[in-house]
Design a protein around this nucleic acid. Structure first.
Lengths: 131, 131
DNA sequence: TTTGAAAAACTAAAAACTTCGTATTTACTC
DNA sequence: GAGTAAATACGAAGTTTTTAGTTTTTCAAA
């Protein structure tokens, strides 16, 4: 059985592009480029290159539509979020996700409302597991 | 007043080294090199280069001790953890830390025990804020 | 005080990432 | 089919990151 490589991480710019594709569902070079924020002046060919690389790395697939390619994420944002958190937890939190949450919860900028939401999430998950 | 630049992130190898320094408290090139795991064969000069760069970027300071330099983190691991989480939250979780926790809590590999610990952390923090 | 081993300083090669220009292809219009 | 505007393919320059070699300095021991 072939080993699945499910631990590759996106570079900064790749992530920037994936975020747009995740928001769009799918899109052409032009679609992604148009979504980039004011002041982010990237040549059309640069954008095309990034998407080509993402396809090489198998983060997206593409289909032909008329003259252009339409790029489609082959990995959901959820899945990538999980992968990223595992990586960060491993590299900076001694591989214990709890300490990651501990750090977050200790952040002064986190509001009580946010904390309440978090507790609700945890409670719901605990209830579902037993019930 | 000068603007503080408190948002620089460590590269992969820089983080690898900072982790050892954080564990050691402080250490020489040799100290760090000796702590790297089996199979991580890095030349002495490479390690020295990394530490020099970390000093340039002001993640560490150093003092002379006999023949060698002793490197000391100038940023605590806690602080860097917070910084990293903010960055990840911004780039991959629409700047809402709650959704980061939601993703983590939804991870099937998280045990009920871990969930319990997380809830306790949240409860304690909520209690302290009001009490 | 010479000498030798260890460290530092410096330089630079190799690899990865980011950006873009040129050339070619594509599909539509006349 | 020829013209043309838009897209792709390809190659590569510039930058940052990672790694390591060479030279110089430093300290201590003989």
């Amino acid at each position: 059985m072939r080993k699945k490589k499910s631990n590759e991480l996106l570079t900064e710019v790749e992530l920037e592009f994936m975020n747009e594709l995740w928001a769009l569902g799918e899109g052409t070079v032009r679609d992604v480029l148009d979504r980039l924020p004011e002041g982010r002046d990237l040549a059309y060919t640069s954008a095309a290159t990034i998407l080509r690389i993402l396809e090489q790395k198998e983060f997206v697939t593409s289909r032909k539509d008329g003259k252009s390619h339409v790029f489609i994420p082959s990995l959901g944002k959820d899945a990538y979020q999980t992968r990223s958190l595992k990586d960060l937890s491993m590299k900076l939190f001694d591989d214990t996700p709890v300490s990651l949450v501990a750090r977050l919860v200790n952040d002064d900028e986190l509001t009580d409302e946010a904390l309440g939401t978090i507790r609700a999430l945890v409670d719901r998950r605990l209830k579902n597991d037993t019930g």
